[in-house]
């Protein structure tokens, strides 16, 4: 549905994104995750034909974004960051305006607007002037307008920014409900939000895609696991031994109630537990506890976006 290949965008000499590639299949919800200024908006603007890339290509619904810009725009519903609407119009006027711009006929316009007002819980606000709406309500109006005409692809730039937790949950629920039926890319820099809704993830950092894949793939591939060891004995010696075990990336020594406590990071795809038990015993330690934990997505995110480079 969406294929992005080697997109690069330079503002002057500054590369906002470099060699960005990913793929979204039909019905998938892709969470586009990255810290501020990492190039999420830039990528989305290119995908929605707001501006061209410096190099690279992308296809949406099989249409090239440079050659078939009109078809691409017909098939994408784009909600920009901060949802700029026209504050002087009433909600229903705005929706009707957008519907007509998208070429919907009168009867379909009425039907879809009524449906979307319902679906996006706009309710009684449909005759209120947009300038008087709260941020959350404006966001819903923006989303409803984006959904007009039933575009099969949705591109939502930070749809939850500036909302309170309840509103965030509602908007995310809405997006989740649209998944499966529509192909969705939505950006955010808040991981738990993405985890709630997305089934796939693309993490972008300093303009480059650091990681893409399904949620499980990512936690598995980049995450590895953590092992916690409590042992009696010479902590220093135990740690040295543990660090020699194959697959162990790092071991951090601490202590609690006179016991040595080791936080061991194990590389992905290896099971080091047996080796660890032997190593502790070999260092003359008495193993009291060994517990395994998956690295959470949050650890992955923090590591990718913060520590590397």
């Amino acid at each position: 549905m969406i294929e992005v290949e080697g997109l690069t965008k330079r503002y002057g000499d500054f590369p906002a994104i470099q060699d960005v590639s990913f793929k979204v299949e039909k019905g998938q919800v892709l969470g586009f995750l990255g810290p501020n200024g990492s190039g999420k908006t830039t990528t989305m603007r290119i995908l929605t034909c707001f501006m061209p890339a410096t190099s690279g290509t992308a296809r949406v619904c099989g249409y090239d974004i440079f050659e078939d810009s009109m078809e691409v725009r017909r098939n994408i519903g784009y909600m920009p960051e901060n949802v700029p609407l026209y504050p002087n119009l009433r909600v229903n006027e705005y929706l009707s305006y957008r519907a007509r711009l998208k070429g919907l006929g009168r009867s379909q316009r009425r039907k879809e607007i009524a449906e979307l007002v319902d679906r996006c819980s706009i309710g009684d606000f449909d005759r209120v002037i947009i300038g008087k709406l709260s941020k959350g309500m404006r966001q819903r109006v923006g989303l409803a307008a984006t959904l007009l005409g039933g575009p099969p692809v949705l591109v939502l730039d930070e749809p939850t920014v500036g909302l309170d937790p309840n509103q965030i949950r509602e908007i995310l629920g809405l997006i989740k409900g649209l998944g499966g039926e529509r192909t969705i890319i939505f950006s955010s820099h808040i991981l738990p939000e993405v985890e709630m809704v997305a089934d796939h993830l693309a993490i972008i950092r300093e303009g480059r895609i650091a990681l893409t894949g399904s949620l499980e793939q990512i936690t598995r591939a980049a995450g590895g696991s953590k092992v916690r060891i409590e042992a009696r004995g010479d902590g220093q010696k135990i740690r040295d031994a543990v660090e020699k075990v194959s697959g162990v990336r790092k071991a951090v020594l601490g202590s609690r109630d006179g016991l040595a406590v080791l936080e061991v990071e194990v590389a992905a795809g290896t099971d080091a537990r047996e080796g660890l038990v032997k190593a502790v015993a070999g260092a003359g330690g008495g193993l009291l506890e060994l517990s395994c934990g998956r690295t959470s997505l949050a650890d992955v995110f923090v590591r990718i976006t913060a520590t590397e480079g």
Partner: peptide, 19 residues
């Protein structure tokens, strides 16, 4: 990731809206 054959315009259901 499973690499799918690239989608064509025909394979992609076009917008249902009657214009």
């Amino acid at each position: 990731m499973a690499s799918e054959t690239s989608m064509t315009a025909a394979a992609c259901e076009t917008h249902p809206a009657r214009r």
